[in-house]
Design a protein around this nucleic acid. Structure first.
Lengths: 214, 214, 214, 214
DNA sequence: CATGAATGAGCGTTCATTCAT
DNA sequence: TATGAATGAACGCTCATTCAT
């Protein structure tokens, strides 16, 4: 009856993106905004529907239930992030450049769509039960894995310390990145202008690479 | 209505330090466990009551509502953490020692009470809306402030790079710490034995101080 | 959220006078019956839903909460009464006829729908705090005012004693009417047959007009 | 264990009123005030206890439960009223004097203790389920009966119309009295000064005796 | 007598989900 | 596809009542 609940991971190649129904898009985007604002548990399906200017029941036409909607939002956001990581990982440059590139990407997204970052950070990572079953967790692991890969490359080329555990390093780097952005999100770290945001980014990159020691 | 809902710091005489009804304790501890396991939204007051071996209504005798219970849990956990930070901050040693001490404290707590750390990390930090109003946010800021203070001291003594913004550094350090522990909590970073835990700790400390660069 | 909770007086076109969902009606009528039987505090939403043969949650689809449901019941009942009073007030006849007409109306309603009268009397008038805020109180005042108006007309035409305060007279009349009906409701005053009811009515009208004195 | 829950109807004769424990009194009086203010359903036992400056559980030492407390309040209030009615009924004077005396008594009480009248009127009479089982209803019937008796006497002496049904007349009279007082209670009928109160009283008496007709 | 901690049934309300149209 | 009325399980909170001291 409904082909609508089809795969969400259709490659962005020419010729098939038009099959994502417009309303489905609208719902997904609305969900990002609403989740970002009120959190997963703080918002109702009705809120999402209203924000998407769509009838109540239509949400259930495109998504099996609230959880699947959340998963879809996460998948969408993480896919973007993962793709960027993968591109960076596969690209040219030193490990330092790549790490800086990762940070740059996240901060850039923050500049243009802070609410998307908010969902990613405050909801995805932090979902209790969290980083739980389903694709969400795998995707998160993939992100860590990609960063760990960057680290491994750097170690192989002698650019990074060989005695650092890539997984731990990746987690630590992403954690620092995350809390720095969290700090901006909640206003603890000042980030009202673009300059301030860039300054924070450089600070964080510096910390990751050369540490605090004088 | 009831004196029970009073502040927990009523010194009525020598030795009864912090007179607090036994059952209140039990509820609070049960709440930590249950929150850790199912998350704030995933658990019901009935769960907490059952875990505390206490009648349903008694929870409401000691706490105005679910939110206040959560806040109390947070306050308790953070107070422990803040006190440890403050002690470390005020103590002797180089900035590096202090940062290592902070990490050591968190990892030690994790060894003996992982669920407490879980609540602290997965619920407190990550509560959407989160880091929100009330004491929770202030306490979080205080934690960041204390770490920033350690950084400042280290800079003053020439032990740490003077060009690092203490607040950003503090956020990044705590973030790295947090995601590393998160990784352990969710099993991404292996931490089944004490040795493994210590190894992760040393890795993270090393990253914070000397960075990744070779 | 739902257009259902709208005003009941939306004339969208000729002939759809007061479009109101069938189920809303059912709930409202059920509420009258249940309130009449058990009182506002004695009945649960579940009782109303069951009496209306409707799912629990549907009550909340049409009414914000229990209070609003009560207010709606009151509004409905009083509106009928007020309209009747107004028609009588504006009509022909002596003041005595009009007062008799008012009494006649109430006793007629009682004959066909005693429970409606019961709600009006035992719940509306007597709600503690009662005659309280909101439309309920105003409506009550309007009723008294209309009766007072009838009295004033009668005085102007010389049919009624000029030295009677219309407001006090109206209150007294309605009070006598009410307690007489109350007496029937609770069985103190015998009113099992239509003849008995009419007899009581005539008695009460007589008392209001010529008093007790021989 | 507890003789406290003893009969509440001890005659006020010399030598036994000192057996009414002071705290019991306090609770009873507090209950009158609290019921008057918030209604039976709107107040909690805790409210009564607090208003009486008495410990929570003590209420249950003197009264089996909330209902019995209400009944006791009613009994106390009605007893006063019934006694006054009985005294008037048994006294000298015409029926008109007696009716005036009844009204005078109620209005006098209102002047000194409006909250007591409020409870009597808004809670007793109007208790849904109302005028229900137990002593409350019997007492109410007794009051009506006594007034009806006054009417009967008057008819026997030729002072009052013989064709009036004493019970209906009594109900109507008390009803008029009640709504007039209700009107004062809720502010519909002005009664701020003693003069105004007396004026209302005379109006109501006049209406009962000679009616409205010119 | 007096206290107030402890108990738990009861109920109002929310909201994810289904379904008829 | 699209709509929103209808459903009912779930859960937070209240408060009358009991009981140990």
């Amino acid at each position: 009856m409904s082909r609508a609940r089809q795969s969400r991971t259709a490659p962005k190649g020419a010729g098939n993106e038009e099959f994502e129904p417009e309303k489905r898009r609208a719902i997904l985007h609305a969900a990002v905004r609403v989740f970002a604002e009120k959190g997963y548990h703080g918002c109702r399906i009705a809120d999402v529907a209203r924000a998407a200017n769509v009838a109540y029941g239509l949400v259930y036409h495109y998504f099996r239930n609230k959880d699947e909607l959340l998963e879809s939002v996460f998948a969408e956001q993480w896919t973007i992030f993962i793709n960027a990581l993968a591109a960076i990982d596969a690209g040219q440059g030193t490990a330092g450049d790549k790490i800086a590139g990762i940070f740059g990407f996240v901060f850039d997204v923050y500049k243009t769509a802070p609410s998307a970052v908010r969902v990613l950070i405050l909801e995805v990572t932090r979902t209790p039960q969290g980083l739980r079953a389903g694709s969400t967790r795998e995707t998160f692991e993939k992100a860590v894995g990609l960063v760990a890969d960057v680290v491994r490359q750097g170690q192989a080329r002698g650019e990074l310390r060989a005695d650092a555990d890539p997984i731990v390093a990746a987690a630590t780097i992403l954690g620092g990145l995350e809390l720095a952005v969290s700090g901006m999100v909640v206003g603890l770290v000042p980030a009202s202008t673009e300059e301030e945001i860039d300054r924070v980014k450089n600070q964080v990159v510096g910390l990751a690479l050369v540490g605090l020691r004088a």
